[in-house]
């Protein structure tokens, strides 16, 4: 991953996420429950954007790599955008929460990233435009030790590779 490039690309995203997180902090006191459906995170306060209206990540249930309806919706948006921007390649990062053994989580992150990759391929994106990397539980976005934090960390994130 090239960090300097992704920083350049995400100036707008940072602005956007600031607005999003500002909204979210207002809500959290009352609507923490509303951000999870079962075990899966459905909120937006950690979500960044690949492009306008195209969220970069999808969330998973504990120990699962099955894509939810919402995840498939997000990935279809990513696929549409990737079709329209055929010069851009992506890396799908797979992540797990902290409540699992390190090595199993590395494998689970890889499985999640591939679930997202496979869905993008189904929607017409060439496999050689998508690489995957698993970080297991090594790169959480939320450092809390509670079910809501864990649900935000069980994710795959699609980032621009070039």
């Amino acid at each position: 991953m090239n960090f300097s490039k992704s920083f350049r690309n995400t100036f707008l995203v940072i602005l956007l996420s600031l607005i999003v997180s500002a909204c979210a902090t207002k809500k959290t006191t009352t609507k923490v429950e509303g951000q999870m459906q079962g075990d899966v995170y459905t909120g937006t306060d950690t979500v960044k954007y690949l492009a306008d209206g195209v969220p970069d990540r999808v969330f998973f249930a504990t120990n699962e790599s099955i894509l939810t309806t919402k995840s498939r919706d997000t990935l279809r948006k990513q696929a549409n955008w990737l079709r329209a921007n055929s010069s851009i390649n992506v890396v799908v990062e797979g992540h797990a929460d902290e409540r699992g053994t390190r090595e199993y989580n590395l494998a689970l992150g890889e499985r999640r990233a591939n679930a997202a990759k496979d869905y993008l391929i189904t929607y017409g994106i060439s496999a050689d435009r998508i690489s995957v990397i698993s970080y297991g539980k090594e790169r959480p976005v939320d450092s809390g030790s509670n079910p809501l934090s864990w649900s935000k960390n069980r994710r795959s994130v699609t980032v621009k590779a070039n």
């Binding site: 790599s65 090595e103 590395l106 494998a107 890889e110 499985r111 990233a113 591939n114 679930a115 496979d118 698993s134």
Partner: peptide
């Protein structure tokens, strides 16, 4: 060791 590819280790 484990080797992971295409979602399988």
């Amino acid at each position: 060791m484990s080797f992971a590819k295409d979602g399988n280790s």
